[in-house]
Design a binder for these strands. Structure first.
Lengths: 223, 223
DNA sequence: TTATTTATGTATCGAGCACTACACAACCAA
DNA sequence: TTGGTTGTGTAGTGCTCGATACATAAATAA
């Protein structure tokens, strides 16, 4: 029925036909995200959403499709927010990147300016009655996050800042576990300080380059 | 209205008045527990429960009160099951106890004979719309579990198998985080093998007694 | 037997759910 | 203006939710 046209830089529809929307779509989406984040998917009702967004049901449905599509957009928005706030890929070493990510998450999970915990983790647990397609999307995103860690560690091995022979998959699993656990701890009222202490502990696992070894690429080190 | 008389060994009510119950209460509770474990609290409907328990709504309400009370009994039953299956308190050292607990959980969380993940963790995330009293009970149980770990570590310090000066609270937080994370990983399809690898990593954090030091009580060691 | 007590099956209850039909309002093109 | 198009507010739709009213069944107590 409706084409999901992305209104990106080029070729924004030049002329709006019909009555213009009377609310800020992005602001409404942000409000919806906050509710989903706080209550999860199933426990959030349409009336919860319309109240928070300041619109009526028909406006919600015409702008976002249905509850599931709105949720998917909220997830997307959440992930973009996270990506913008924590450019951990800028760190030169794998260890630095993971430490930065964990420390950022520890701070943000306990932040009081938004719901506690990670929206993705909350979504994971509150979508057991959602459609299989939605569950599949969520599962894929979680696996992608874990794989992101794994690839960063693998890059570290290639670049020589992580010892060769390190099991990148197992290490990624470990830090994924830590991240998921911290999210639940935050929901349960853990403080920023407490979470950072756990991060400190978790970083002790990270394999160190034997003392005296170069931190350059393997090829360089072998030369 | 109704006295919650525990029909324990002594003084079981000698004569049942009125029509006797036509179903096995324990079996029905076990069936309900399985459903709550799989779907969480909110996503489980009364009809889900009555179907799994093989009874009609009035029987459910007369035997268990309401959905929340049934859930509380299911939680209780779940925790007893866990306590019986993993007597980790029998381990002589704190490290051994925690390692045994984590390994048991890693195996059990990925077990296919019952829903994956820990029922308490699932409950934590799927009770955002439950009554505040239920949420308080769940929160207390989670804090109690964390405190259990902390006290076991503290005992290890007293008995000399954990280095003096160890921050028992921070260490308990760390292993709580691991346990919570493993539960989510298991829900996401993590294998027993993968979880055990994470346990292996997590145990490397545990503070070791300096080499050559005695493992006896501090008093003995000081002598 | 009759009275009392308790459990069960049928058949709902009112409330809230996700979602929408419909009339109207607000903008464009002509 | 007139017609076409699209968003908005009112007022619902059918459905499922948690929980029950009620008549009856099955036990004990007298």
């Amino acid at each position: 029925m409706k084409k999901a046209v992305v209104p990106s830089e080029a070729a924004k529809p030049r002329k709006a036909r019909g009555r213009p929307r009377s609310f800020d779509r992005d602001a409404a989406l942000a409000a919806a995200m906050e509710v989903f984040w706080r209550k999860g998917f199933e426990a959030t009702s349409i009336s919860d959403l319309t109240e928070a967004m300041g619109i009526n049901p028909p406006s919600l449905y015409s702008a976002f499709g249905d509850k599931e599509h709105l949720f998917l957009e909220a997830i997307e928005s959440y992930q973009n927010r996270r990506g913008d706030s924590c450019p951990y890929e800028a760190e030169p070493t794998a260890r630095g990147a993971i430490e930065r990510l964990l420390e950022y998450m520890a701070s943000d999970l306990a932040e009081s300016s938004h719901p506690r915990g990670c929206m993705m983790m909350i979504a994971a647990a509150t979508s057991t009655n959602a459609s299989t397609s939605l569950q599949k999307v969520l599962s894929q995103k979680r696996l992608a996050a874990r794989d992101h860690l794994r690839l960063r560690i693998k890059r570290g091995i290639d670049e020589g800042d992580v010892p060769a022979g390190t099991d990148a998959g197992a290490l990624a699993d470990f830090y994924s576990t830590i991240l998921m656990g911290m999210s639940l701890q935050a929901r349960d009222g853990a403080t920023r300080k407490g979470l950072l202490a756990t991060v400190q502990q978790a970083m002790r696992i990270f394999p160190a380059i034997p003392k005296g070894a170069t931190r350059k690429r393997r090829e360089t080190a072998a030369a």
